[in-house]
């Protein structure tokens, strides 16, 4: 359908929705029509939720986690181990690690990984802020995704953190618990074999 056929208010919404990650023009149009056909209150609730999200949620000024206050709950929590910082790509990873209940240290959200192909350099991430936090820290745990870019970013961080004489570790790679060797892909299995542990 040619673009001009949509009334401008509809076209505007399609364009805005189309900016969202993973949403193409077709999906955006479908969503826009859904909203158009939905109940007035339902549509307003969606709009309000977006407004409230931007009003209330901000990024923690220390670790860049999402927070309803200037400093997030984890950074304010004096019970937590302030000698450990776990570096992650995004708040989503933080929530997953928190769910394990295994980690009592602090976090630092980088806000992405280095990727010149996407125009993201070290200066676009919260790396200087990480360096600023390093002086009283004993261990930095790198927990970035095991993608090409995640790996390169880990290497980059380990290089620039080296002068600070802090212990740098990263998550182990291995076989998912509860799975069967038969169903593990060759790649994961070979990494697990390489980083095997002595019993």
């Amino acid at each position: 359908m040619p673009t001009e056929l949509y009334p401008s208010a509809l076209e505007e919404l399609i364009e805005e929705l189309g900016r969202l990650p993973g949403i193409g023009r077709k999906t955006a149009a479908r969503l826009a029509f859904y909203i158009l056909n939905s109940d007035q209150n339902e549509a307003l609730a969606l709009a309000e939720a977006i407004i409230q999200l931007k009003k209330k949620i901000q990024f923690c000024s220390i670790c860049f986690n999402i927070s309803e206050q200037e400093i997030c709950g984890i950074c304010r929590d004096l019970e937590r181990n302030r000698k450990q910082i776990c570096v992650i790509e995004d708040p989503g990873s933080l929530i997953m690690i928190e769910k394990t209940n295994e980690y009592q240290g602090l976090y630092h959200v980088l806000g992405g990984v280095i990727s010149p192909l996407d125009g993201i350099g070290a200066e676009n991430l919260h790396i200087n802020e990480l360096i600023g936090r390093i002086k009283n820290v004993e261990e930095v745990i790198l927990a970035l995704n095991p993608s090409t870019e995640g790996e390169a970013t880990s290497i980059y961080l380990s290089k620039i953190l080296k002068p600070f004489e802090v212990k740098i570790t990263r998550l182990a790679r291995g076989i998912p618990l509860g799975s069967h060797l038969e169903f593990v892909d060759e790649l994961t299995l070979s990494k697990a074999l390489k980083s095997r542990l002595e019993l």
């Binding site: 350099g121 070290a122 790996e151 290497i155």
Partner: peptide, 25 residues
């Protein structure tokens, strides 16, 4: 390789640690 070559082309962006990260990869 693409990432490193892109860094080499981008003047000013190619500080040694950034290049080294891709070199390690």
């Amino acid at each position: 390789l693409k990432q490193r070559n892109l860094l080499l082309q981008a003047e000013g962006m190619s500080d040694p640690p950034a290049l080294e990260a891709w070199e390690e990869a």
